[in-house]
Amino acid sequence: MQILIVEDESSLMESMVSYLEMEGFRCEQAPDFKTAVRVLDKHDYLCMLIDLNLPDGDGLELVKLARENDSKSGIIIISARNTIVQRVEGLDAGADDYLVKPFHLSELVARVNSVARRTRLKGGEMLSFGLIRVQPEERSCFVDEQQVELTKKELDLLLYFMANRNRVVTKEGIADYLWGEYGGDYGSYDFVYTHLKNLRRKLMDAGCPDYVQNIYGIGYKFSFV
């Protein structure tokens, strides 16, 4: 599964590549507009991550170009600019998602997965981890064929964990992904904990082993113990 990353800041590029490769993606790197145009239709990418601010061009043009080439890849815009107008422009040009810098790598992966599901698999896919199976489009969750009723937030949290399996995700990352601007400024992330506790209880009640590990109070890791 190839991912094209167009980003001029080499440090950030390296981080994204490392993290995505840990998740099993292969990455094609394009540090500027010219390179990006050249490799744009070299592969049928699963997803393209495009920075808007490039030294030799506008990322938005790349998005338009990709869509003109009838590319079926998912496109996520990565930008430091965060205005509604720019978001709308980006999505109008054909992007599937818009991620504002600075972002959590775990959030990036969750979004890549979700965009890939939407564009590639038309939602029919069943995600599974151990005994857990989730149908993202139907928003249903099963443990060993037994359906588990989860709230919207709990299901989103589970999907986030499944996208970042075997990785440490921070509480801030979860709060940002699930609550966005409603997540910060409260001085604590107790509300994240509350939802996580409920999710774990529901899964374990259904006979599922506890896959969530607490990592030194810094965050959580979703993995087989």
Binding site: E9, S11, S15, Y19, K101, P102, H104, S106, V168, G173
Partner: peptide, 17 residues
Amino acid sequence: LQTPLAVIKSKAELLIQ
């Protein structure tokens, strides 16, 4: 500030792994 912040954030996240 956005870009260096993004770099620090991503590096820290990688390190955590």
